[in-house]
Amino acid sequence: MSEPNSDNIETALKAFMADHPGKLTREQAIAAILENWFTTHGYLPPQQEGRRPEDLDASNDD
């Protein structure tokens, strides 16, 4: 990167990767950051997590 803020971005990327040790390659970290940004800004639908309806029963109630 040769942009004026590239050092700050590189530092932030390294910090993000340090928070996820051994789990992300540089490309995976960038993809995760972009996916999060696109989702929070409405460009991607939020990914839903949870149990499938057929897996729900009274033991799942909180």
Score class of each variant (00 low, 15 high):
Ile9Cys: 05
Asp57Trp: 05
Asp61Val: 13
Gly42Asp: 03
Pro4Ile: 07
Pro21Lys: 01
Ile30Leu: 15
Glu35Arg: 11
Glu3Asn: 09
Glu35Val: 01
Ile33Lys: 01
Gln48Ser: 14
Ile30Gln: 08
Gly50Lys: 05
Gly22Pro: 04
Pro53Tyr: 08
Tyr43Thr: 07
His20Met: 04
Phe16Lys: 02
His20Leu: 02
Ser2Arg: 05
Asp55Ala: 11
Asp57Gly: 15
Ile9Asp: 10
Ala31Met: 06
Gln47Met: 07
Ala29Asn: 02
His20Asp: 02
Thr40Gln: 14
Gln28Glu: 11
Gln48Asp: 08
Pro45Gln: 13
His41Lys: 09
Ala31Arg: 04
Met1His: 07
Met1Cys: 10
Ser59Thr: 13
Thr39Lys: 03
Pro53Cys: 03
Leu56Glu: 07
Arg52Val: 10
Asn36Val: 07
Gln48Asn: 11
Lys14Thr: 08
Pro4Ala: 11
Phe38Asn: 13
Asp7His: 09
His20Val: 04
Asn5Phe: 12
Thr25His: 02
Ala15Phe: 12
Glu35Leu: 10
Arg26Cys: 03
Pro46Asp: 06
Glu27Asp: 12
Pro4Tyr: 06
Met1Gly: 15
Ile33Tyr: 03
Arg51Val: 09
Glu35Ala: 14
Tyr43Cys: 11
Glu3Ile: 09
Pro4Asp: 10
Thr40Pro: 04
Asp62Ala: 08
Thr39Met: 06
Asn5Lys: 08
Thr25Gly: 01
Leu44Met: 10
Asp62Thr: 08
Thr25Ile: 02
Ile30Tyr: 04
Asn8Ala: 15
Gln28Phe: 02
Lys14Tyr: 01
Glu54Lys: 01
Trp37Gln: 06
Glu54Ser: 00
Arg52Ser: 12
Asp57Thr: 02
Leu44Tyr: 10
Met17Trp: 00
Gln48Glu: 12
Leu34Tyr: 06
Thr40Lys: 14
Met17Leu: 05
Ala58Asp: 15
Met17Thr: 00
Ser6Thr: 12
Ile9His: 05
Ser6Met: 09
Leu13Ala: 05
Phe16Tyr: 15
Asp19Gln: 13
His20Arg: 07
Leu24Pro: 00
Met17Tyr: 00
Met1Gln: 02
Asn5Ala: 06
Asn60Gln: 06
Lys23Asp: 06
His41Arg: 08
His20Lys: 09
Asn36His: 13
Asn5Cys: 06
Gln47Leu: 12
Asn36Leu: 11
Met1Phe: 03
Gln47Thr: 13
Ala29Phe: 01
Met1Pro: 12
Phe16Ile: 07
Phe16Ala: 06
Asp61Trp: 04
Tyr43Trp: 06
Ile33Val: 14
Pro45Ile: 00
Lys23Arg: 08
Leu44Cys: 04
Ala58Met: 12
Pro21Asn: 00
Asn60Ser: 14
Pro53Gly: 00
Asp57Ile: 01
Glu10Asn: 13
Asp55Tyr: 01
Leu34Phe: 04
Asp7Leu: 11
